[in-house]
Write a protein that binds this DNA or RNA. Sequence first.
DNA 1: GCCGTAGGACTACCA
DNA 2: ACTGGTAGTCCTACGGCG
Length: 804
Amino acid sequence: MELEGVIIDIDHVPLADRSIIRITLKSNSGVYSVLDKGFYPYFRLVPYNKNIDPASISKMSFRDMQQNQMPVHKVSKTRHSLAGKEVEVLKIEANSPRHIPEISRMLAEFGERYEYDILFWKRYLIDKQLNPLHGVSISAHDDDGILLLDSIKGLEEEYKLNKDLLQLCFDIETYNPAVVPRPDKDPCIMISYWIDGESGVLTTKKIDRKFVKTFATEKEMISAFMNLIKEKDPDIIAGYNSSNFDVPYLMKRAEKNGMSFRIGRYDEDIRQEHHGLVEAIRIPGRINLDIYNVARFVSIVGASEKLIKINRFTLSEVYRAITGDTKITVDKNNIWQIWDGTDSDREELADYSLSDSVTLNKLYEFFIALETETSKVSMLTLAENAVSTTGQLVEVLLMRYASDNEELVPNKPEQQEINRRMSNPIEGAYVKTPEAGIYDNIVVLDFRSLYPSIIIAHNIDPAAIAGPDESVYNEAPNGIRFRTKPIGIVPKALKKLINDRKEIKKAYKKDPDSKTLAARSSALKILANSFYGYLGYARSRWYSRDCAASVTAFGRSYITMTIDDAEKAGFHVLYSDTDSIFIQMQKKSKDDAISFLNSINAKLPGLMELELEDFYLRGVFVGKRGADAGAKKKYALLSEAGRVKIRGFELVRRDWSNIARTAQKDVLEAILKEGSKEKAMQIVKNVLDRLRDGKVELKDLIIYTQLRKDIDKYDAKSPELAAAKKAIEKGAKRKDEVQGATIGYIITRNGNTISEKAELDELADSYDPDYYINHQVIPATLKILKELGFTEEELKGGGVQKRL
DNA sequence: GCCGTAGGACTACCA
DNA sequence: ACTGGTAGTCCTACGGCG
């Protein structure tokens, strides 16, 4: 039979003598499971002795630790290129991926080993050139009720499912008399879900709510949840931090109840795997999607795309960030008391539980387009894409190009090599020091995708570095020479991403409401922007100090050339950072700026392009604290269209209080929009008065900071650390609640030093006006008012005493 | 012992 | 656990002073 569809999941099933690939395919006619017996896991060996006979390796006897035979399936000769040179390679196929580590170890004495750590199913996708969500076409036959694959290939046209992938969102509540729930002792008390518009709560006590179903035991409740999944057959199981909490917890509870928590499409256990630093949950035949990971990924990687900015990654904070609404909540530490409380307590708990799943579904709807489109670009399954870092996405993409080009995939570096790379960083971008001041009529120009376009224009690739005796090359400003051809896999991959994005943008213009097109464009940009970083990443397979240093050297050269030309043409350059240049127009017209832009573009190679970012009516640059020089990476602009663009100022930083941030924002806007010196001063005076009079709400005084390290591993004392430690001592927080978390604290009146005065936001009952005046509002606003000609004394004279 | 400050640890930002 | 460049806070150690 012939099948077309998207790959939901791909894994392998271990049989007695070998492992075979299994594909879970979703087609418009249903979900199919197809086995491919024609593919074997393998690694490659570059033998020290070229005359080594493949047959002799085939005949060797390999045994594992338990002395089980591990026959080699097949050994064949290939030719591959390695760092730009042709080499003879042996491809050694095994029967099971489990055999690869041992067989490759035993062959280490015969040569250099490569590609021994590429996962079996990933290898399959790469070698067969498949893109799971884009769609595949399969030819298979029925063998006693099992579908066996005859051939598979990727589809040219994207496969259109007539319905979106079906998601089930769920969340659990647990009994927690010890505050932190103990999976071996404390039962799961509620499971809430949302699927296809239907939502409900499964529980074990009678609760008077229509959406609640009550079961006699925890075991029956978990079984009912498993049955629900079986019956509704979702493609995606979405939770919030579910890979670390909900799923492992239910697995443990099921085990305690003498059963197995199985929610896949096959009668198999869920697999828990380490994936870099995150825990990955594999649900056979379905897609596990932990929205917590997704939100973090988008927030970190999508930052440049301005997708979202989230300060804290709790479910309710993320919900608030994307919808502006707040969700209902309960005191998490007291769930067990609520559960043991009154009927109405339990009704509220059920409402809360339900709201978590409903909320989660809204987050799912918000993130799924980008997640799906990133998967199509990375050509990984949705579940794998969701647990991958950008580094891993770039890596797997380059593996595909290496495979197409018959290049060996470089090995991952050993720890010693990683340390060596990290201790030797490269020089980065150029940043011009601005002159503090307030300027009118500014034009901002920037290079479109500077680093990707440099890599493409100059064929920057580890395998393209020319030797000293070669004559055809392009020399980077740092002296590294790159062959002009053949085109390396790094520029080749980038060019495809950039060309694809051009096409998508064209389509988007015709269909501006398409979320899919917008998300695909973002996904392409995120991937393209990660290549330079990957070249300089210490753990990268394609690390190349020379390449990364050449990219930034070219970058510095292009931007300084642009600055010099602008000045030669009579413009005043205010500021520049990496790929952008801020020009004060003075007597020049917009046409002059455009013709300058054109003159630069006329001499740029390839698809490199300087773009007009925007014209601005006014801009503010401030001085560095305690120095004459202007501060870099800090500016505020007002565009002709009335858009305010603010970068770097305290008001965009979460580790400043709301009161200081708001005051700074109001001052900047008063200057930008109204040019009013007096109004700016009045804003600050009002805030200082309110602070002194104790009229400011505590919530506007919270300072948020992440405790990035283990709480005992800090060398330095800090207010946030002191506040966290005090909360732990009081028993208000557990270590694991604050470690790695973004905590909020307030400087109170109790104590002498700032650290002594710091208390977690929920524990603080006063604030120290002196601190907020002299350490928050004044530093944030004074440097701006200074540019208006005010002095510190005038500000203080406006009603502030420095002394208590 | 008090004061001012250089320098380290740390975080969050820009590109 | 993609890069480097940067500002800024808080704290501590240190040196000068008396």
